[in-house]
Amino acid sequence: MTERTETGQAPDLLYSEAEEDLRAAVRSLLADRADAPSVIDRTESGTPYDPQLWKALATGIGAAGLLVPEELGGQGATHREAAVVLEELGRSVAPAPYLTSSVVATETLLALGAQDGPAAGLLAELAEGRKVAVPAVPFSASSLSGLSSDPRAGADGLDARLGPVADAAAADVLLVPAADGLYAVATDAPGVRVEPLVALDLTRPLATVTLDGAPGTRLADAGAAARAVDRGLLAGAGLLASEQLGLAEWCLTETVRHTRERHQFNRPVGSFQALKHRMAQLWLEVVSARAAARNAADSLATGSPDTPLAVAVAQAYCSKVAVHAAEECVQLHGGIGMTWEHPAHLYLKRAKADATAYGTAGRHRETVAALMELPAP
């Protein structure tokens, strides 16, 4: 394993033994409770979330509190461990609010730096899996700057129409950035309406959130709120790359398996040179995506000054690889890949939806260009 220097210049891209143990536990749970038929059935029913799956993942394994320090009731782990959980969730496209709640919302609250008070109390509840919180910002937002509408905080409460908000249907608490600060708003409070939207990705539902005089608990002032939410979105974009990596790995593995078993002209179709070349190219892309995703997770974990660059590179590359892997999976499965019964369509939809989450690949390439002072074409 690469030794880290005192200046943190050598990122560790390998998986530790503890991370592999965590992977095995999460994969076993998802194989039992979120296999392909189960996920397809739940998306068809219109209720994709499985409360028992979330309880087992968040509380049984303790994944919800990985980023929360032990003194606040969490596991005291790092973004590297959270990235492993997201890789496995990407492999199964399991409908679970892990990215939005256990990463983005949790990182936002941690960035406030509160050791007591409402923010610390909410963090403890998230770490223990007793509540789910999601940021009430569009799923496509990469930062608060540029958002067209800010919630207004008045004497009667908060007023706004926000969306599309990912996983709002599964949330107990919304983190609402307003003009004068950050508010925690319970989804069952008066004046709060969560209206489901028709989303491409049925495994990560979107919703419009309407606040009409909704009561909220103020967690921070405007300046601290903006910095905290932007930090949460940065962590979300960085670890989303790990979800995209897991998705791409499943698509490649499943495609190789299918082309070995599927025969034409008395030969496995995977032995045809044209298909071998396509799968070899995809393998190279997945290997590179793993390096980019691990670098982003390691940078977030170590607080590297190059974190914004590492995240931008990971998102600019991994979103493209995930979409390509899912497209190849559908096409190389032939007719069965086009059916609703086969899970390939879930992976393609998740990959397409993830490609616009927390900033598009184009937006992240612009970030890379700005950070590296490269002139735009």
Results as ranks from 00 to 15, higher is better:
5 T>L: 12
6 E>M: 10
6 E>T: 10
10 A>E: 04
10 A>H: 12
11 P>V: 00
17 E>M: 10
18 A>I: 02
21 D>Q: 10
21 D>I: 00
23 R>T: 12
24 A>G: 11
25 A>S: 14
30 L>K: 06
32 D>H: 06
33 R>Q: 07
33 R>D: 10
36 A>T: 12
37 P>C: 12
43 T>H: 07
45 S>R: 10
46 G>V: 01
50 D>A: 01
55 K>N: 11
55 K>M: 09
57 L>V: 11
59 T>I: 10
62 G>Q: 13
63 A>G: 14
63 A>D: 13
65 G>P: 01
67 L>S: 06
68 V>H: 03
70 E>W: 07
75 Q>D: 14
77 A>E: 06
81 E>T: 05
86 L>D: 09
87 E>N: 11
88 E>M: 14
92 S>A: 15
92 S>V: 13
92 S>I: 13
93 V>Q: 07
99 L>W: 05
107 E>G: 11
110 L>S: 09
112 L>W: 02
118 P>C: 02
119 A>I: 06
139 F>A: 14
141 A>I: 02
142 S>N: 08
144 L>I: 04
148 S>H: 01
148 S>L: 03
149 S>Y: 05
150 D>E: 10
155 A>M: 10
156 D>Y: 04
157 G>C: 04
158 L>F: 01
158 L>I: 03
158 L>D: 04
162 L>A: 04
162 L>I: 07
163 G>K: 07
175 L>F: 03
180 D>E: 00
183 Y>V: 02
183 Y>A: 05
191 G>K: 10
192 V>L: 08
195 E>G: 09
205 P>S: 00
206 L>P: 01
206 L>Q: 01
206 L>E: 00
207 A>E: 07
207 A>T: 06
214 A>C: 11
214 A>W: 12
215 P>V: 12
225 A>N: 01
226 A>V: 00
231 R>K: 12
241 A>R: 01
243 E>L: 15
255 T>V: 08
258 H>C: 05
258 H>N: 06
261 E>Y: 13
263 H>G: 02
264 Q>G: 10
264 Q>R: 04
265 F>I: 03
268 P>A: 02
269 V>P: 08
270 G>T: 03
272 F>K: 08
272 F>V: 00
276 K>V: 03
277 H>I: 05
279 M>W: 04
283 W>D: 11
284 L>T: 07
284 L>D: 09
288 S>E: 08
289 A>S: 00
291 A>E: 02
291 A>Q: 04
291 A>M: 04
292 A>D: 01
293 A>L: 05
304 S>M: 06
306 D>Q: 08
307 T>M: 03
309 L>I: 07
315 Q>W: 13
317 Y>N: 12
320 K>E: 15
320 K>F: 13
320 K>N: 14
321 V>A: 15
322 A>P: 14
322 A>S: 15
324 H>C: 14
326 A>C: 12
333 H>D: 03
337 G>K: 02
343 P>L: 14
345 H>E: 15
345 H>C: 13
351 A>V: 05
354 D>H: 14
354 D>K: 09
359 G>I: 09
363 R>E: 15
364 H>V: 09
369 A>L: 07
370 A>N: 08
370 A>D: 12
372 M>D: 11
377 P>D: 07
